[in-house]
Design a protein around this nucleic acid. Structure first.
Lengths: 328, 328
DNA sequence: TTGAAAGCGCTAACAG
DNA sequence: CTGTTAGCGCTTTCAA
């Protein structure tokens, strides 16, 4: 029942004051000297009537919408787009902002990207979060510069090196994540650790894993760059008679909790902090909008957030003696 | 450079006409009689100046924001929240609307849900899409009724039966999906088909699968209610020496393409049409907002959209003779 | 300590 | 065929 159609002047009438006073009381205007009694009267009248401000009118007047645009790649395909949205939503809400979300194809060209941003600018968003699904350099749409903007998971191709025209960015500390992955294998006692990655994607890493694991000097620990690879490794290991983790330990960069937890053995993962990156980026953006932070200054170096190692069942001590068992 | 700060009167001045004329030309107002020459002059002036309408001012004037609220459960946890967002985004954009997205915890109580909706109402959204992550009856927040609303993946607990207070809803045709799942097993020649579902969730269905597959009269085809169960079945089968699909065929309700495609053998799935449900719901909602459809009328029966069977590698003909091999 | 007045940019009656 | 006028609900000088 909260009256969506009663306005400031209804409250004013009910409280026996002017609209100005209502506005000042309800917005806690610092410079306004208003007696405590009046304040009470206004507030209770507002409460009584179920008054809620009309954010559209306010936006028109102040030219601030408290709307944040979120451009996000491949929502619905990528497993972690949702985490980005959640992080941004939480942080935005905590500071009184709302999220205008727009999906963009990872494959989209510059024109389409510019149109996506434009559709947010038309809405007069106060700022834009630009999230990509894989950490990378990005050719950004030119109109992104029309409002404060922060990148999530990507760094500006333009800004790299030339500190001047870049955007503030929040990225995962992949190097640290890789160190953590290798480190957990070393800590378990492994000495022969390899990684299979970007170049080995046929059949989700299965072929590469077959090749690697068939070698006499095969590694006892493997770091995978994503989930499909880990699954390929599991399959290859099973076929070669190698048990995980008894004969082979596996760690993977992965964000699909559902998958990692339900593999057998459950997959030890390094996860990128998508939710945190998004909420951090959102806070930076809002600070920038509100003049609490200098976005241009922050653009010089991206903010890197640590990845998290989640130990599950796929890492154990190396076999000893470390002789390949083969497929008998 | 599209001038975000040049207004209708700048265009009017440039074209030598009044603001009214500009507004009418640019909005193609049907009742306006304006000469073609004037129209041209206005349009080219607008183009020249890079004029874009101020949607905030327009919203204030017309009390229509062209904003749709999307309340969505467990973004970031659920694998298909993204698909819902994508479907809604596409449909909304196609009709000139934008999406205000808000995440809500699946576990949230009525008060929190009401607050979530309230935060959208404050923004003066023209309508709300309310998406849950599992098809089910739902206790809806009371204030959802304040604007046109359509449910995605859920039906109103209130509206069930009593056609009066319900909301229009778009749901998956799970029955049809189940028939398709069973049907593809029958078509492959199976005669002993079972399903493992809601009651068997410990260890993702692994325990249930062990039990079922150990029986002498074990089924040769299994329908799983979700991905973790399918993974549990794969594991149980492997341990019991049952090959998929030679000894056991598996179909699962699943939306995680990444997972299904990378299991070995790849998992045959029945997928719920989340993207289509969302875009359909969005269209219905917009039709309702624009007076082209009667949402109350649609509330009587939810719109059910068909699930899709994707044949991958986990279904084959049953073993013949169909004798259990056991674990020798 | 409070109120009157102006105006954000736009649209919609109504007059010409 | 086109322009004038009013006003959406709010904030913000400025004056009282």
């Amino acid at each position: 029942m909260s009256g969506r159609n009663i306005g400031i002047k209804d409250v004013a009438a009910a409280a026996g004051v002017s609209a100005t006073t209502v506005s000042q009381v309800l917005n806690d205007v610092a410079s306004a000297r208003i007696s405590p009694e009046t304040r009470d009267r206004v507030r209770s009248a507002a409460g009584q009537l179920g008054y809620g401000p009309n954010s559209v009118a306010r936006a028109l007047r102040t030219s601030r919408t408290a709307l944040l645009g979120l451009v996000i790649e491949d929502v619905g395909t990528s497993p972690h787009a949702g985490q980005v949205i959640r992080g941004a939503d939480e942080a935005a809400r905590a500071r009184g902002y709302s999220l205008l979300v727009i999906n963009t194809a990872g494959s989209a060209g510059p024109d389409a990207r510019e149109a996506d941003v434009e559709s947010l600018l038309v809405r007069r968003v106060d700022g834009i979060l630009y999230a990509t699904m894989h950490p990378r350099q990005l050719q950004l749409p030119a109109n992104l510069g029309d409002v404060p903007a922060v990148l999530v998971d990507a760094v500006s191709a333009v800004g790299a090196g030339s500190c001047v025209s870049g955007f503030a960015a929040v990225v995962p500390d992949d190097d640290g994540g890789a160190r953590a992955a290798v480190g957990c294998l070393l800590a378990a006692g492994h000495t022969r650790v390899e990684s299979i990655g970007a170049g080995d994607q046929e059949q989700g890493g299965y072929a590469a894993a077959r090749r690697i694991l068939a070698r006499a000097d095969r590694p006892t620990g493997l770091v995978c760059h994503d989930e499909p690879m880990a699954m390929g490794v599991y399959r290859a290991a099973a076929e070669l008679g190698l048990a995980i983790p008894a004969d082979l330990s596996v760690v993977a960069f992965a964000n699909n909790h559902l998958l990692a937890a339900n593999l057998y053995p459950a997959l030890t993962t390094v996860t990128r902090p998508h939710t945190e990156m998004a909420s951090r980026a959102t806070e930076i953006l809002i600070d920038g909008i509100e003049g609490r932070a200098d976005l241009a200054g922050l653009a010089v170096h991206p903010t890197a957030l640590p990845c998290t190692l989640t130990a599950r069942g796929s890492v154990g001590p190396p076999p000893f003696p470390a002789t390949p068992r083969g497929n008998f």
